[in-house]
Design a protein around this nucleic acid. Structure first.
Lengths: 191, 191
DNA sequence: ATAATATGCAAGCATGTACTTGCTTTCAAT
DNA sequence: ATTGAAAGCAAGTACATGCTTGCATATTAT
């Protein structure tokens, strides 16, 4: 791997802060996990907080799901929703560690808090807007778009959490099963 | 208030550990918040871990929603589900601080992890069983009970989270609105 | 080859924090 | 009134941890 020193440190820090919390993740432990000397950390990031802030700069932006969605939408409720679920779960998986870290330490870092809120909120906005249009086009039942959107988002977020340590079920549900069963039920309810 | 010294310490500890994390919640700060001397803490609980373990003993059991449900069920899908939502939200609200604390520190305390998992899981079990019976009685559509149950539970848990710092929405939804809109939509989908 | 830059190593400092000890004060039960 | 338990107060210990410094070594660019 050609990962730079800074990146190695950042990745190690994210892992450890997630596992042990910000205070629990010692600079010595981070250094060891990143296979660098402890001083190297301070030379690069100044102080401990600097590592986490660099990590935030690197990862804590909310990707523009809008763009992907606008490209791929075909105005067929089943295809569109299934596509949305896949895109959203991919996004959540990519940011998984940081999201779980944010669940712990969002008190200490304002930007983590912002990200954490945006992750479901921007999703809800997209879906609300989508449902509005689908109702106009008379492709789904005339129901409150925001209500539909929150329900849909809750189901999505719940599934994501069910795959984490937070809320793991006994029966792990694969993404395909989840779409074929849970999402299919939701779609059926719209028609 | 007649709160005993031990209780004052436990409550202060829960608050602070939730806010600052386990390591971030110093015994001095806990003592100050509880209006007791720091030594009093150690005389009662031995060490810092002892406080949290006492807190767990006091709160981290999953209440028997089964019993309440068995009492109140009337085998009418609308009434039953609305009742369930209310009961579950009440339970979540009662344990709110501890649940949010558990989101942070469930790595360190196995019992917190257990509780965290049981909170949605036992709910899903109850609902699955309920749907099975309702299908037998031919009161709802013949759909996979477990799928219905997870969807229902995800919506419930999502709503709970939307009221916390974790995932707060711009438009705060009251429990009545939530039931009248989101849950009503779910019920309609069953018929 | 030389210079510059990045990293390792060893040692140490300052500070915060969990926890202890010895003694005094408060206060309720007998 | 006397006693005993619970809580306060003051001081201190041991240790972990963030961060610094000075120097040696490796790596890269010119």
């Amino acid at each position: 791997m050609h990962t730079s020193t800074e990146d190695k440190i950042i990745e190690a820090a994210i892992e450890l802060v997630y596992e042990k919390g910000y205070k629990g993740a010692t600079t010595r432990a981070i250094a060891q996990k990143a296979n660098v000397n402890e001083v190297t950390i301070f030379r690069h990031f100044g102080n401990k907080k600097g590592i986490v802030e660099a990590a935030i700069q690197k990862y804590a932006f909310v990707d523009l799901l809008e763009d992907t969605f606008a490209e791929k939408v075909v105005w067929d409720i089943e295809k569109d929703l299934k596509m949305l679920v896949k895109e959203y779960q991919t996004l959540l998986d990519q940011k998984k560690t940081l999201i779980l870290l944010a669940l712990r330490e969002s008190n200490e870092f304002a930007e983590l808090n912002d990200m954490l809120k945006k992750v479901p909120q921007s999703y809800i906005e997209i879906i609300t807007h989508y449902f509005e249009q689908m109702i106009e086009r008379e492709k789904i039942k005339k129901l409150d778009p925001y209500t539909l959107a929150t329900n849909f988002a809750f189901i999505n977020f719940g599934y994501f959490l069910s795959k984490t340590r937070i809320m793991s079920e006994t029966e792990e549900l694969s993404i395909e099963e989840f779409i074929d069963k849970n999402i299919a039920f939701f779609i059926q309810a719209l028609q």
